[in-house]
């Protein structure tokens, strides 16, 4: 555990909590892509199956359980509790275009051809693209509430901090996880355009982020 990794995990947790509280308090999931949230729930489910097979630390186990619970709770709020506020017409990204290539790639490029390994690889690849339906939705409607942009900011920051964590681990312990690093770099690139808009529009102005 290093400072980048810990801060990264905390930003990830903060992002998920921000989204959950935003929906819970406003009783509305307007502007939120339910598809991205289902993909994240799928990411956690397929990655954290090792909760049943290996114990790493109390921290690791607790964080995994918290992420899983919050991911499913968020999906529940969007699709069941506050379903009437869900903008399904704007959330029109075709997730099969992500799921099929990601599933195919996880069979082809993995560390071992074993069920848990393939599912772990699938989760890594899927996480790198899971935010695309949300970014697509913002592009399509041309705006996002500031609280939604704060959620995306913390999620992007988590990714950037994990990159720093891998650089640190490579130099201090010789640790290098090729699949995670390549996917992580790809994932972080998706946030660059958003980061630019966040700093130039949301932080400088106020309220909503509108696209030019």
């Amino acid at each position: 555990m290093n400072i980048f990794r810990l801060l990264g995990d905390m930003c990830h947790l903060v992002a998920i909590i921000i989204l959950f509280l935003k929906i819970w308090r406003s009783k509305s999931c307007a502007g939120i892509s339910g598809k991205s949230q289902v993909l994240f729930a799928l990411v956690f489910t397929t990655r954290y199956l090792d909760l049943f097979t290996s114990f790493i630390s109390v921290y690791n186990t607790v964080m995994k359980v918290v992420f899983l619970v919050l991911a499913y709770a968020t999906v529940y709020l969007i699709y069941l509790r506050f379903r009437s506020t869900y903008n399904s017409e704007s959330d029109s990204f075709r997730v099969e275009f992500l799921l099929v290539p990601v599933a195919g790639l996880s069979f082809l490029e993995n560390y071992a051809f074993a069920p848990l390994e393939i599912l772990w690889t699938f989760s890594i690849y899927l996480e790198s693209v899971a935010i695309l339906p949300q970014l697509f939705m913002i592009t399509k409607t041309g705006e996002a509430e500031s609280i939604t942009t704060h959620y995306l900011f913390f999620l992007g920051l988590y990714r950037a901090l994990y990159l720093a964590n891998w650089v640190w681990r490579y130099h201090t312990e010789g640790f290098f996880d090729q699949i995670a690093v390549v996917s992580g770099v790809v994932q972080t690139i998706f946030y660059c355009d958003f980061f630019y808009l966040y700093f130039t529009k949301v932080l400088r102005g106020s309220g909503k982020m509108t696209l030019p």
Binding site: D9, D50, I56, M63, K64, Y111, A112, E117, N165
Partner: peptide, 10 residues
């Protein structure tokens, strides 16, 4: 036989 490391990251 590849010996896989435990995945300690989240």
């Amino acid at each position: 036989q590849i010996i896989l490391k435990k995945k300690d990251e989240l």
